[in-house]
């Protein structure tokens, strides 16, 4: 009289469908992301030149990589660029967010203006700033035409200063976005806390320094993570703005990897530089993502 206690076909199919739908994406991720990472790591231990070879040379590529002056320039540049970029973007973003939060007339008009660079390609940004900072036609010439005869601005042609041009363009592109993140954080703060602090006698300066900014910690963390990962990945902007020059003065790990792998036929070294880049980003992203996902559970 009792029917067997096994699931019918449709029920079993329904149990498997979700996994079947997700499986291709997961497989693609495993192959194209983690498989490729493994392959690149593997290559970094081989003596591959123009094409992949599978002769293992141990840590040779890493040793050679860190002996290259070219790589040292790239590392030094990324350190300078990333720290300035993160600090300046955060500072400008925080300042603009706090200012915009003061019941500013025309906020709805200003906010999109601060943010629109984020919608542009780094190539477009690079092109615009490249010519604006060019002494021959850009800022220097404009200032002189306006009567400031002694004005000079040749950073982009200067080995030591060109890197700061990249910082300017990158800050221009992203600081509005950081502003939006901080603004969202500010809007999330309960107004009653602000009122309580004012009744406690805090001046505006104290209010922000002691109460508001500490409460923005999650926004700072997000900004830091996003900016640092953008900084390490920055390739397009350097290519468009300076092409790594003058000379090699604005070379970054991203451009280094590309040129060693595809134009200098040093695939082993290129691969090892990519591995170093991945490890740096992973050191920042993995703990962050882990914490985010764990919290949500």
């Amino acid at each position: 009289m009792t029917a067997p206690a096994t699931a019918d076909f449709r029920t079993r199919l329904q149990d498997w469908l979700p996994k079947m739908v997700l499986a291709p994406s997961f497989a693609v991720t495993l192959l194209f992301v983690y498989g490729f990472i493994a392959f690149t790591v593997l290559l970094s231990f081989t003596g591959s030149k123009m094409l992949p070879k599978y002769d293992f040379v141990g840590l040779d590529n890493y040793r050679r990589l860190f002996a290259l002056e070219h790589w040292h320039i790239a590392i030094g540049n990324i350190a300078v660029f990333a720290s300035l970029y993160i600090v300046i973007c955060s500072a400008i973003g925080l300042m603009l967010a706090i200012f915009l939060d003061q019941k500013i007339r025309g906020e709805g008009f200003l906010r999109p203006i601060f943010l629109y660079p984020m919608a542009l390609s780094f190539i477009v940004t690079g092109t615009a700033w490249k010519w604006f900072l060019d002494p021959g036609i850009g800022l220097e010439k404009v200032m002189r035409l306006w009567g400031w005869e002694s004005f000079t601005f040749t950073w982009i042609k200067d080995n030591d200063l060109a890197i700061y041009c990249i910082v300017i363009a990158a800050v221009w592109q992203t600081s509005g976005f950081v502003m939006a993140m901080f603004l969202a954080g500010l809007r999330g703060i309960d107004n009653e806390i602000l009122k309580a602090a004012q009744i406690d006698g805090a001046s505006n300066w104290q209010l922000y320094r002691r109460i508001v900014i500490p409460m923005l910690r999650p926004a700072f963390l997000s900004a830091f993570v996003i900016l640092s990962h953008l900084a390490i990945k920055s390739y397009d902007l350097v290519v468009a703005l300076t092409g790594g020059g003058p000379g090699r003065s604005t070379e970054m790990p991203a451009t280094f990897m590309y040129s060693y792998t595809f134009t200098r036929n040093q695939m082993g070294i290129g691969a090892s530089s990519a591995v170093i880049m991945l490890m740096t980003i992973a050191a920042i992203m993995v703990p962050y993502l882990y914490a985010e996902l764990k919290e949500k559970k």
Binding site: L22, V33, S273, M277, L278
Partner: peptide
Amino acid sequence: VFGLMLFSCFIPFQIVLIP
């Protein structure tokens, strides 16, 4: 599964260029 897919958004793509 999601964490692995999410991390793939943040890798430097240089790491996958050759393969």
